[in-house]
Simulated assay, not measured.
Amino acid sequence: MIDDGEASTGLMRFGDRVQREAKLPDGTPLFGGIDQKMVKAG
């Protein structure tokens, strides 16, 4: 961004998904998984 004056890597786009899950050191899930899809507001 400093060299180009703007972001040169792709960011999330509508329709992209993000999935995540937190686990304790022994592998036990801390809470249920999260699965989000980017959608337009409104």
Rank of each mutant, 00 (worst) to 15 (best):
M1G: 09
M1C: 07
M1E: 10
I2E: 13
I2R: 11
I2M: 08
I2A: 13
I2S: 12
D3T: 10
G5L: 05
G5A: 06
G5S: 04
G5T: 05
E6F: 02
E6A: 04
E6M: 03
A7R: 01
A7H: 01
S8K: 12
S8P: 01
S8W: 05
S8I: 08
S8F: 05
S8G: 03
T9E: 12
T9G: 06
G10Q: 12
G10S: 12
G10L: 08
G10N: 08
G10D: 12
L11E: 07
L11V: 06
L11M: 07
L11R: 07
M12A: 15
M12G: 15
R13V: 08
R13G: 07
R13H: 11
F14R: 09
G15D: 03
D16H: 05
D16G: 03
R17A: 07
R17D: 06
R17G: 03
R17N: 06
V18Y: 11
Q19A: 11
Q19S: 12
Q19P: 00
Q19I: 10
R20F: 15
R20I: 03
R20G: 11
R20A: 14
E21S: 11
E21N: 06
E21T: 12
E21F: 00
A22N: 07
K23F: 06
K23W: 00
K23P: 00
L24Y: 08
L24Q: 08
L24S: 04
P25W: 01
P25K: 02
P25E: 02
P25L: 05
D26F: 02
D26Q: 04
D26W: 01
D26P: 00
D26C: 01
G27D: 05
G27H: 03
G27Y: 01
G27M: 00
G27C: 02
T28S: 10
T28A: 06
T28F: 00
T28P: 00
T28I: 06
P29S: 02
P29Q: 03
P29T: 00
L30Y: 11
L30E: 07
F31E: 14
F31W: 14
G32N: 10
G32E: 15
G32F: 04
G33C: 05
G33Q: 13
I34A: 10
I34D: 11
I34P: 00
I34N: 09
D35Y: 04
D35F: 00
D35H: 05
D35Q: 04
Q36N: 10
Q36G: 05
Q36D: 13
K37T: 15
M38Y: 14
M38R: 14
M38I: 13
M38F: 13
M38W: 14
V39E: 15
K40Y: 09
K40S: 13
K40H: 12
K40M: 12
A41M: 14
A41H: 14
A41N: 14
A41S: 15
A41T: 15
G42Y: 07
G42P: 07
G42V: 11
